[in-house]
Amino acid sequence: MNPHEYLDGGTVRVASPTYAVCRVDQAPASCFAVVRDETETTAVVDQADGVPDGATDVVRDWKRLTFEMELPFELVGFLAVVASELADAGVSIYALSSYSTDHVLVAETDLDAATGRLETLGCTVA
């Protein structure tokens, strides 16, 4: 399987909310995503809902790009292609994956550069 085949003609949707990524003790139920490991809990929250009480190390003003395509577990290198292309444009990403879909968060100031690069890969940005 070639990642470029999924990107070419695939849809990338820019979510309306602007997000904050923060370290928390307790993630609120309303957050978009939670990542927990042995040492910390990270929450991705809609800034309009406010940053959770007690949140530390808050980084604000992220936009979410969702790859609206079902990506099989056997697909190798999809996120590597996306990350490399955006890195070449000087765009830092925060990557998240659900069961079958990938998301990347990019700084709001980098949104135009990110979407432009994804369009060069053949994606339709909506």
Rank of each mutant, 00 (worst) to 15 (best):
V59T: 14
L75F: 05
A113R: 11
P72C: 14
M69R: 07
E108V: 13
L71H: 04
C31K: 00
A126W: 07
T109M: 15
C123V: 06
P28E: 11
V44F: 02
D102N: 08
D49R: 05
A27F: 02
K63D: 15
V21E: 06
L86T: 05
R64K: 10
H103A: 08
S84N: 11
T39R: 06
G10T: 03
S100P: 03
L75Q: 00
A43L: 12
G10P: 02
A29C: 06
G90Q: 10
E119T: 10
A80T: 08
A33I: 07
A20R: 00
T120M: 13
E85W: 10
R60V: 12
P72E: 12
V91I: 09
Q26D: 14
A95Y: 01
T11H: 14
T66C: 11
L7S: 04
D110V: 14
S92C: 10
T109R: 01
G116P: 04
A80Y: 06
D110Y: 01
M1V: 14
F67Y: 11
V14H: 11
A48Q: 09
V125E: 13
H103D: 15
E74A: 12
R117C: 15
S84R: 07
E70W: 09
C31S: 07
M69A: 15
V82W: 04
S92T: 10
C123P: 00
L65P: 03
V81P: 00
V76R: 07
E70V: 09
A15G: 01
A95H: 03
Q26H: 14
S30V: 03
